[in-house]
């Protein structure tokens, strides 16, 4: 159902339809909602990276959810929910990229299409997120402050520069170096984990 449909149907008809859906597919709908909730934070991050606007990110994630909800019946229990949801999200991002507001801040549709990860490139972020947390603590205090202001407080470099009393250029360089350092740190963790797993497997 499209968002405006319930206005056309009227509140009572909409509620009745929803009730029917919930009764019919209650278990399936709850499963899909639970799985969506599990992946939503990661999905939002991915969408934001593509379209660079928080409000539009929220819109895209909501629209993805609505489609997931609508197609809950189609999801096969035990199959790859993550890949399914990302495929829907991918279409929603490309749809959104045609809007003028998105075109101002994000890449053109053809470029976004080139940058979309393939299904086999989608890695589960849960381990990497915990590795990221320990890597952030290894950053220098000033780099960590810049990262926190950028990603926790959603500030852009000019605002960070004012708080830290640095030049905007210095903040740009600091953020860039911090991202590289974090990437390398996570990679190192992954390699160590991989070696230790191999070690255990050999015993």
């Amino acid at each position: 159902m499209e968002p405006d449909e319930h206005h056309l149907l009227g509140e009572s008809a909409f509620a009745e339809m929803k009730e029917r859906m919930m009764v019919k597919n209650e278990e399936q709908v709850e499963l899909v909602q639970r799985l969506f909730l599990q992946h939503m934070s990661e999905l939002r991050a991915w969408v934001y990276t593509m379209i660079r606007d928080l409000d539009l990110t929220n819109d895209v994630v909501q629209e993805t959810f609505l489609t997931v909800y609508k197609k809950a019946d189609q999801f096969e229990k035990g199959s790859n929910f993550r890949a399914w949801v990302y495929a829907i999200g991918r279409l929603k991002i490309l749809e959104a990229s045609r809007r003028p507001a998105v075109r101002e801040v994000a890449f053109a549709e053809d470029v976004l299409e080139l940058l979309m990860p393939k299904e086999n490139e989608l890695a589960d972020n849960s381990d990497r997120l915990s590795q990221l947390k320990s890597c952030i603590l290894k950053l220098s205090p000033t780099s960590r402050q810049a990262v926190v202001l950028r990603y926790m407080d959603a500030m852009k470099p000019p605002a960070i520069a004012q708080i830290m009393k640095w030049s905007v250029n210095a903040i740009n360089v600091t953020l860039s170096r911090a991202r590289i350092a974090l990437k390398e740190c996570i990679l190192k963790h992954e390699m160590e984990d991989s070696f230790s797993q191999k070690g255990l497997a050999g015993k």
């Binding site: 991915w46 991202r179 996570i186």
Partner: peptide, 24 residues
């Protein structure tokens, strides 16, 4: 490569700033 770590940081930032449920 850069967008990958940026997305991870974005996810971390949202979860840390509001707590996981709050971010959702």
């Amino acid at each position: 490569k850069t967008a990958d770590i940026d997305a991870l940081l974005f996810q971390w930032g949202e979860e840390e700033a509001l707590g996981a449920d709050g971010a959702k």
